[in-house]
Design a protein around this nucleic acid. Sequence first.
DNA 1: GCACGGCGCATTTTT
DNA 2: TGCGCCGTGC
Length: 760
Amino acid sequence: MPELNEPQKQAVAHLEGPLLVFAGAGSGKTRTITYRIANLLATRVPPYRILAVTFTNKAAAEMRERLTHLTSPEVTRDLWIGTFHSVCARLLRRYHDAVGLRRDFVIYDASDQKAVVVRALRELGYDERQFPPKQVLSAISGEKSEGRGPREAKQLGRLTDVVLEVFARYEQALGLSNAVDFDDLILKVTQLVEDPASAAGLDLRLRFSHVLVDEFQDTNLIQYRLVRALSERTQNLCVVGDDDQSIYRWRGADVRLIRSFKKDFANAIIIKLEQNYRSTANIVAAALGVIEPSREREPKELWTNAPAGDPVRVRAVMDEREEAEQVLRGIQTELSRGTQANSIAVFYRVHAQSRTLEEAMRKGNVPYQIIGGMKFFERAEVKDLLAYLRLASNPTSDTDLARVINTPARGIGDKTVEHLLNVASESSVCAFEAIPQAMKELGTAASKKLGAFKNLIETLQVEATRLSPSELAGHILEVTGYRELLRKEDTAESDARLGNLEELVGSIQDYETETVDTEPTLSGYLERVSLVAATDSQKNGPMVSLMTVHSAKGLEFDAVFLTGMEQEMFPYRGIASGEDEELEEERRLAYVAITRARRRLTITYAGTRTLFGQTRYLERSQFLDDLPKSVIKLEGSPRAARSAGGQAGARYGAGYVGGYSPGGYRSRGDGNFQGQRYASTGLAKDRPVLAPGSRVVERDEYSQQSSGEGQAVRPGSHVRHVRFGEGVVQSVEGGMKPSVVASFPGYGEKRILLEFLEPA
DNA sequence: GCACGGCGCATTTTT
DNA sequence: TGCGCCGTGC
């Protein structure tokens, strides 16, 4: 094997028995995996006996492509490479009978799921405000991702009775609709594989001789059970991952699975890929500084032979606007020195931060693209057309039926729909089947319209067998009057919607031309739409990418701008809820962000940030304290920026509320005025100054950038007022004109602008 | 059935 | 701030 380092070679050469590979960031993981599979093929393991599971379709496509180069398209074609969900969907199409599904089952996405939950709540008579559908759904999904249905969940007793009731109703509704959700795809296959009595299960247990899981640190329990069961016979399970990069706990990923793999597989070989080939030494050092305080990491030493490179720039700015300007300037410098736009990226913690950055890019004429955000397939008109297509394939899908039964408007009002759904749930059938019964009970007008809708769907079912998927889509837009309606509307918005619909039809045509091995089918297209995230915004041409840190995982760029490195923003305020593990995950997220950069990394943090219409005063992120100061270069200062903006003068200064102050970093070191971070709410708790094990970074390094005047105010602070004398602060409010409520002996509580106070 | 206005709310996201 | 959801009024 050419150009592999020692541990990589070991991993590639390991063919039989359980294998755990800890693959550090930039350590050549994909290369190792693909070589290993090629090696398996070379030892005459048939390709159709190899299952490789990835986390994204993109990763799957990349792996397949690399393997195509190493072997041949014929061989690669037969490999089982895909995401957990797409592999399971494919298996379920084959074994649908065994789990009680009809072949054309549909896959419900988050919004479909939510619609089902809302309906269940309403039917059961519960208040949606008291039981927010999103939370109910996440509880349900949490159970399913650990392999429990309503019954098992009840036994476990972690859910409230209401949620359990909704859960049961939800499952029933999906069954009647011949629909599954994402959790089901994995859950149902796992149940099959684990069922000793099932013929399909036996088939599955014998199917694969080698199973490989990428990004294993982001696997949830049911996914782990699946691959364990699939490889139980041969024990040829290879898992690859990095516990330091586990960032999806909130959706069920369990980092303990990778850490305890060796307990389940006592004879597992463990290999660590620790040499980083991606980044400069300074960037690697910065990354290590951030991750090392992490508590329960698997011990490993990321290292590099690369030269130090540029220092990591840490820039203080006044607010998000100055931050955006600085990022823009940085990008322009990169471009002028020849860095390709598409190897430049800007990261932020939450999408809401993107707008200001976007505006700056536009102003500076920098070509950019936002990754993520509102997705093409989430748009109403796109969902409508897809709902029609799904009904043509599977008319039992209640969510789809409810969605389009009156879109475009055809006089079937809420009352009629409600009646129909009630009839359906009373007789435990899907809504489509309930139409004849409902028609009997309704007035002539409503009945007639319902009948017409039923005819429409039945016609579409027939057309679906005659027309190609894209032709059917065009047909639907005509016969439903959908296209006509938008044409007549003739506004900028309706134009955009028409455009989106054309794009959707175009995407179906693409599917048809791309599908060469097999016949392109409607259900094939629908499955692809359900399982493949829209790569719509991936336009061509060199563009700077703006994205959340989560989206950045798995990517790399020559130059990275990491923005919003402030307490409460990053780590995101999750720590307020107190769980250590949340802070740990934020730390890993920061590690992921830093390790994306190949050559240059610029980190910015702002003194104030306006988010959701509220201006808040923020401290530097605690993670900045963990960067070894030998590799960083500090630039800018919030104070200088502020004076440049022409707001100076007050004793506390407009910016000195609530824990942030230019000298505040120093004052934190003094042990005074720690901790107040939520100027407007007073919610903040004192945080531990430093996590155990973290390095103490000299505050002077930072505070020397500012004059050090001013101090943070928080409830309990003593202040002095010209007229009221000395008082104690009760609460603090930020905003353009920060104020406090303070109680003054003899005067009571007074709200006073901060600029009229001085420290007592 | 639809347009409009008020209210409440606000991570991260792939599948 | 801005979006989605709900209720109201036509």
